[in-house]
Design a protein around this nucleic acid. Structure first.
Lengths: 118, 118
DNA sequence: TAAATTAGATTACAACAGTAAACAAGGAGG
DNA sequence: CCTCCTTGTTTACTGTTGTAATCTAATTTA
């Protein structure tokens, strides 16, 4: 079961907009993204073709796009890929690395610990 | 300053071998990696061409390969890319996500906290 | 020394990704 | 009703990546 979710770097901004709010028309989506319109059209179509998003025809000539892949599943998939690729699947290695590289400080962790005490 | 280090998925196993130990010949490197030899040769050459590794001619006909890019810099670069791409650069978002997805448990974190008390 | 092995270089090729122009058809406005 | 605009579709092109066969020159071996 290879459930790698394939969303490319340049497609991701579109997904982020749709994850904020479903059922948007292409002009609505593109309004929140920078980049050449023609390019964005291509990316939108590719996402539909891949089954990552879907399009519904509301009235004639009015299409609304929605995410099919949900944000959390994408994130989980990315995390898993990252972990496997870079840290051979070891969570400990990864966390230690984040800490020792000082991308994450002890304070960050403490704050986090506090947060999840709930 | 775009210091993205470009090492692809299929090139990474070679790098991992070289990060373990420098100055290895290609047969030594390939002995520890699965995959078609011809393919591995291509990947090795691409890494040299990109300046990620270097090759020294020891004796005539004896070449030794070594990493130029160091492991920590690669990991740092990957972490940064991952953070920016998926979590818009927010460490907190990322850690929270790791925890809430239960990829990382409270125990993992506690253990980590204990470890870095040194 | 001739044959076989070895290892780096060259060539190849399909899929994917980033980018974008051109096209086509329906709807809106004059 | 006809023209323009809008929006989805088609076509296109370049670079990257994964994969691998073939070529070539040197070295080892029989």
């Amino acid at each position: 079961m290879n459930n790698k979710i394939n969303i490319t770097t340049s497609e991701l901004p579109i997904m982020k907009v749709l994850w904020e709010k479903d059922n948007q028309t292409s002009p609505e989506i593109f309004a929140n993204i920078e980049g050449n319109i023609s390019t964005l059209k291509t990316l939108l179509k590719r996402l539909v073709d891949k089954g990552v998003i879907k399009v519904d025809e509301i009235n004639s000539r009015t299409y609304c796009y929605s995410a099919i892949v949900i944000k959390n599943d994408y994130i989980k998939s990315e995390q898993k890929g990252f972990l496997n690729r870079v840290f051979d699947g070891s969570k400990e290695k990864m966390l230690l690395s984040f800490v020792s590289e000082e991308n994450i400080t002890k304070d960050d962790l403490q704050q986090l610990m506090d947060m999840i005490k709930d």
